[in-house]
């Protein structure tokens, strides 16, 4: 990045005014870890948005509202009923990077190996963008294309709403990497809820092995209303892959990327089902 100036607004309104004025020349900055991967050499003005009061996690009833500049370290340390993102944070690189990286920075630009879009898709998170008017986008819409394209000059992603996991729900998350500091080669997140021994809801998202993170709708549909057996999960996964374009990263073949993701989808769903079953005290 080629920074020619740096602004430090202290309120959301001030930040928005600066961003509006600078337009494409502005680069919102919080944790800055993203910038390692950006190759834009055009002159930019860094706009520090880390002092706007957007760094808290709030209990908002049926969901947690995560301020966009909340660090991954804070997501890691946070503990509350229905909160599972600490598990995702645990597998997010190392503590020094967790201390700097923010949830907003981790989702506004999606790289093939990005971690956070996958669990946020599976959890049906919502994204709050503050512009001239506040608007809320579903995870599916938000990640349907590169998210920063949703932002007009002056817009700021201010919050991510993550629904609380209900008591009868389970969460499974797998990230495949060679070392703790490695980029993911396959990320899978699954969230299920069980009612009276059957899957009332099943959501699963995948990333890294595909060009952009996606929800696996066909798999989800096949599981809803089913008994959560290993055979059923495997069948649903294998039958639900149509149309997925596989992309192996960092030296692995597309073929293996597909295989790995399939295995981990089954694992994630099984782990989620096991957890949900344990939560509800029901037997499989």
């Amino acid at each position: 990045m080629n920074y020619v100036d740096f602004k430090i607004p202290t309120s959301l309104a001030e930040a928005r005014a600066i961003l509006t004025e600078l337009g494409d020349q502005a680069m919102p900055v919080a944790g800055s870890t993203l910038h390692v991967f950006l190759r834009d050499e055009s002159p930019k003005v860094g706009v520090d948005i880390s002092r706007l009061g957007l760094g808290e996690i709030a209990d908002a009833g049926d969901h947690y509202a995560i301020g966009a500049t909340t660090t991954v370290a804070d997501l890691h340390a946070f503990s509350a009923p229905g909160w599972v993102l600490n598990r995702v944070a645990e597998a997010f690189v190392t503590q020094p990077i967790r201390n700097m990286a923010t949830v907003g920075g981790s989702v506004v630009r999606v790289f093939p190996w990005s971690d956070w879009p996958i669990p946020l898709l599976a959890l049906d998170a919502e994204f709050v963008i503050t512009g001239d008017q506040e608007r809320v986008m579903s995870a599916k819409d938000f990640f349907a294309r590169q998210p920063f394209h949703h932002l007009q000059p002056g817009d700021i992603l201010t919050s991510v709403r993550v629904p609380k996991m209900p008591a009868n729900a389970g969460f499974g998350y797998f990230k495949e990497r060679r070392t703790t500091t490695d980029f993911s080669r396959c990320t899978v997140a699954a969230c299920v809820s069980i009612e009276e021994g059957t899957l009332a809801d099943a959501r699963i998202a995948i990333g890294a092995a595909v060009p952009m993170p996606i929800r696996m709708g066909a798999v989800e549909e096949a599981l809803k209303g089913a008994k959560p057996s290993a055979a059923k999960i495997e069948t649903a996964v294998l039958n639900g892959l149509e149309g997925v374009r596989w992309k192996g990263l960092h030296g692995i073949s597309d073929d293996y990327a597909r295989h790995l993701t399939v295995v981990r989808m089954v694992d994630a769903l099984q782990a989620a089902c096991d957890e949900a079953t344990a939560q509800t005290g029901e037997q499989k």
């Binding site: 190392t94 060679r178 070392t179 703790t180 500091t181 490695d182 980029f183 960092h250």
Partner: peptide, 12 residues
């Protein structure tokens, strides 16, 4: 680069 060419760190 060390992002793609992987070495263990102490955490591994």
């Amino acid at each position: 680069n060390f992002g793609d060419y992987k070495l263990y760190t102490l955490s591994d």
